[in-house]
Measured scan of single mutants.
Amino acid sequence: SLTLTVRGEEAVRRWYKWAQAHNLEVEVETHGDEYVLHIK
């Protein structure tokens, strides 16, 4: 499992696509303009 902090929706989309390509689940938490992604 992997936890990432990114800024901006574009980065979130990029990681989301990456995770889907690897059959992984993604949980997204929003903290202001930062997003915490939990990839499992």
Rank of each mutant, 00 (worst) to 15 (best):
T5P: 03
K17F: 10
V36R: 07
E29D: 06
I39A: 01
K40E: 04
R7V: 12
I39S: 00
G8A: 05
T3V: 11
T5M: 10
R13S: 08
E25R: 12
V36D: 02
V36A: 03
L2P: 04
D33H: 07
V28R: 02
T5D: 02
V6W: 01
H38S: 07
W18M: 02
E27L: 13
V12K: 06
W15P: 00
E25D: 10
A11E: 12
E10A: 13
E27A: 10
Y35E: 02
A21P: 01
L2Y: 11
S1Q: 13
E27N: 09
H22P: 00
G8R: 03
R13H: 09
S1A: 11
E34T: 14
K40V: 08
T30D: 10
T3I: 13
A21N: 08
S1L: 12
V12A: 12
W15H: 02
L2V: 08
E27F: 13
Y35R: 03
T30R: 15
D33G: 08
V36Q: 05
E34S: 11
H38W: 07
L24M: 13
G32A: 05
G8V: 03
Y35N: 02
A11W: 06
K40R: 14
E9H: 09
H38P: 00
V6N: 01
W15V: 10
T3P: 03
V6F: 04
H31E: 06
T30C: 12
H38I: 13
K17D: 10
E10W: 08
E25F: 13
H31Q: 10
D33K: 06
Q20P: 00
E10C: 12
H22G: 02
R14W: 15
H22A: 05
T3N: 06
E27P: 00
R13D: 09
R7C: 14
K17L: 14
V26H: 01
E27G: 05
I39R: 00
V12L: 15
E25G: 05
A21E: 14
T5V: 15
H38A: 04
A11M: 10
T30N: 13
V28Q: 04
I39T: 01
A19N: 01
H31R: 14
V12W: 06
K40F: 14
V28F: 07
G32S: 04
Q20G: 05
I39C: 11
W18G: 00
R7I: 12
W15S: 01
G8Q: 04
N23A: 08
E10Y: 08
V6D: 01
V26L: 13
E10M: 09
A21T: 09
L24A: 06
E34Q: 11
V12G: 03
W15F: 08
L4V: 15
G8W: 04
R13I: 11
D33P: 05
K17N: 10
A19R: 00
A21R: 09
R7F: 12
L24H: 04
E29F: 12
L24Y: 14
W18S: 01
R14P: 02
V36I: 14
L24I: 06
Y35P: 03
E10R: 10
D33R: 05
A19V: 05
V12Y: 14
G8P: 01
H31Y: 12
E34V: 15
A19S: 03
V6Y: 02
L2I: 13
T30Q: 15
R7W: 11
W15E: 00
A19F: 07
Y35M: 05
H38M: 07
G32L: 05
G32F: 05
K17R: 12
L24S: 02
H22F: 07
V28P: 01
S1T: 15
R13T: 09
L2F: 15
E34H: 15
A19Q: 01
I39W: 02
A19W: 02
V26G: 01
Q20M: 14
R7A: 07
K40Q: 09
R13L: 12
E29V: 11
Y16T: 15
A21H: 09
Y35I: 07
S1M: 13
E9M: 14
G32R: 04
T3W: 07
V12F: 15
Y35H: 05
A19K: 00
H38L: 08
V36M: 06
R14M: 13
A21S: 11
